[in-house]
């Protein structure tokens, strides 16, 4: 019995190690290259390790500008999604609105049926008709529309788990409905809003297709499109710069996921990260 257990332990550990290495392999290059001033696509220990690549990124106006564009688009979307989704989710969770069920069902269907790549054409045409092609606002609005349904479902579940007694006791204590919402629901809902906001941020931050299709001018492109054009077009890519830039660009996403995972634990919120 004990012997068998030991053997199975060893087998499991070896499998785990192999799988771990297999998953890590495509990323290992990223551990070294950013710190290597002469980095190329091969795996080489940087000697000496240096932060020069990062300094070069920060000296590059286009690269920094793209990061700032990413920030602007992500924050704009998060703000829009967080406020409108909270309000709408509250209405979904708490009103006697007739046809609420139908709204939910239709929303769920639409949000999963209308995928980015299938809806690219009409979204492009709508944005074009609105005269918003090549504006950051267009990117923000389109992202917000696409992310809203999921954000609403995440928040609706959070609101549904808040005891109604919280609002009711505020109402009885003399608060108006709006006041009860602001004083009691919003603060209690903060974890939900944080999670939805982080999720939305990460989606926009990493989003490629929407800005790729909607934007034209270099100075409005977010980092995702900028990086792609760095390695796909410009003949021979400037590898050390690109490596450092990719790491910088990934850090916020990793940090946010780490934070949410640590603070709230990883859970599934309506098939998050689609």
């Amino acid at each position: 019995m004990n012997r068998r257990k030991l053997v199975s332990r060893i087998v499991f550990s070896v499998c785990a190690a192999l799988l771990g290495v297999a998953f890590a392999l495509p990323l290992i290059w990223f551990v070294f290259a950013p710190f290597n001033a002469q980095a190329d696509l091969d795996l080489a220990l940087p000697k000496p390790p240096t932060l020069a690549n990062f300094a070069r990124v920060f000296a590059n106006g286009a690269a920094v500008g793209a990061l700032l564009n990413s920030l602007l688009q992500a924050f704009g979307t998060v703000l829009l999604v967080a406020t409108t989704a909270t309000l709408a989710a509250y209405a979904l969770a708490r009103t006697t609105l007739r046809g609420k069920r139908v709204i939910e069902y239709v929303l769920l269907l639409f949000s999963s049926v209308v995928s980015g790549s299938a809806a690219m054409v009409p979204i492009f045409l709508i944005v074009n008709a609105l005269g918003l092609i090549d504006t950051q606002l267009a990117v923000i609005l389109v992202f917000a529309g696409g992310l809203l349904p999921t954000a609403m479902f995440i928040l609706r579940d959070f609101i549904a788990s808040i005891p109604r007694g919280y609002e009711e006791s505020a109402l009885v204590a003399g608060a108006s409905q709006w006041r009860a919402f602001v004083d009691v629901v919003v603060p209690v809902l903060r974890p939900g809003v944080t999670i939805a906001a982080v999720w939305a941020f990460v989606q926009v931050w990493g989003g490629f297709l929407i800005p790729f299709v909607l934007l034209r001018s270099e100075q409005r492109m977010p980092a995702s499109v900028e990086i792609y054009s760095f390695y796909s077009q410009a003949g021979t890519p400037i590898v050390p710069l690109l490596a450092a830039y990719s790491v910088l660009y990934s850090l916020p996403v990793i940090a946010l996921y780490w934070y949410v995972n640590r603070k709230y634990g990883f859970r599934f919120f309506g098939g998050i990260k689609s």
């Binding site: 309000l87 009103t95 006697t96 609105l97 949000s111 209308v114 609005l141 809203l148």
Partner: peptide, 27 residues
């Protein structure tokens, strides 16, 4: 603690506009 239907509609409107314009309408 039912939010009245009118408040409900008001709360839904901003999200409905965005979703309507960029999800439902494209469809």
């Amino acid at each position: 603690a039912k939010v009245s239907s009118r408040t409900g509609v008001a709360f839904m409107t901003p999200a409905a506009l965005l979703i309507g314009l960029f999800v439902v309408f494209p469809f």
